[in-house]
Design a binder for these strands. Structure first.
Length: 280
RNA sequence: CUAAGAGCUCU
């Protein structure tokens, strides 16, 4: 079994799923029963192929065969399900995990919180966040990213700022994702000055803004008519070596057109093409 | 077996 597992894994990793399937058939013919590692490897391969239906059926086979289910397997199946928007089914697998006495890790909790938030159950997401902490699982910077984004999208900006503070207090390595979410929220809520302050705060705290941070702030500036500030940031991106993406250009082109600066908009387009950036 | 979870443009 071990040799077969290693072969199957090798094939999957090099993208030769077909050969892997062949080895699996060979196992069955030689009556070598697949074990939990075989299943785990196979579920991982299906996950990489974005074939979640197969992940689930393999998982169900494991349950039927009463195989011990590794937490990796739960993690992959739950992440796969919620990625497809199947929040309810994700929770069914979670319940199954709890029943089997397997402890969920921070990634599983975070994926489920995000799934609740994205399906419009912001309140439930916050409750589940509390439950996670009650059950002794420490949230990390990704969890905070999900929570803050959830609050921003619900327009609860002040609460998002509170959670940013909590994160700092708990010594979470608050990263650019959290900042970009709030900058975006503030910008879209018309609180551009605060968005700019937050950008400065992150510099003060030694957190390097990435292209998402710049793009959200540039977007905020263009939408309130501050095109010059937007262009200043665009230049700063260049100066500090932050990648200008198709989002950066799209936001600026749109802003320039809105200000009737058609020539500059067209120049921006050419600049984008020159840099080898493909418009979407 | 070492994976697995978050953010930006138009709609």
């Amino acid at each position: 079994v071990v040799t077969y597992n290693i072969m199957i894994k090798g094939y999957c990793k090099s993208g030769r799923t077909r050969d892997a399937k062949g080895k699996l058939r060979e196992m069955k013919m030689k009556r070598v029963g697949p074990d939990k590692i075989t299943y785990l490897t196979w579920i991982q391969a299906c996950y990489w192929d974005e074939d979640i239906a197969s992940c689930v059926s393999l998982f169900n086979e494991m349950v039927e065969k009463r195989l011990e289910i590794p937490s990796h397997a739960y993690s992959l199946v739950i992440s796969g399900l919620v990625k497809e928007g199947k929040c309810y089914e994700g929770f069914a697998v979670f319940d199954c995990m709890v029943k089997n006495g397997c402890k969920a890790n921070v990634a599983i909790y975070t994926a489920l919180i995000d799934a609740l938030a994205k399906s419009g159950n912001g309140e439930e997401a916050m409750k589940f966040f509390e439950r996670m902490k009650d059950e002794g699982c420490e949230p990390d910077e990704v969890t905070y990213g999900v929570i803050v984004n959830c609050l921003c999208k619900a327009g609860k900006l002040d609460m998002a700022l509170e959670y940013l503070k909590f994160g700092h207090e708990k010594n979470i390595r608050v990263n650019a994702v959290v900042y970009s979410s709030i900058i975006d929220g503030l910008g879209k809520g018309g609180r551009v000055d605060e968005a700019e302050k937050l950008y400065e705060e992150m510099l003060d705290k030694g957190c390097t803004p990435d292209s998402y941070c710049y793009n959200t702030l540039i977007d905020a500036f263009t939408k309130c008519g501050k095109i010059d500030e937007a262009l200043t940031l665009f230049k700063r991106m260049e100066d500090v070596g932050c990648d200008q993406t198709v989002y950066t250009y799209t936001i600026l082109i749109s802003g320039l057109f809105k200000e009737h600066k058609t020539d500059e908009a067209l120049k921006m387009w050419d600049m984008m093409i020159d840099k080898g950036i493909t418009p979407t």
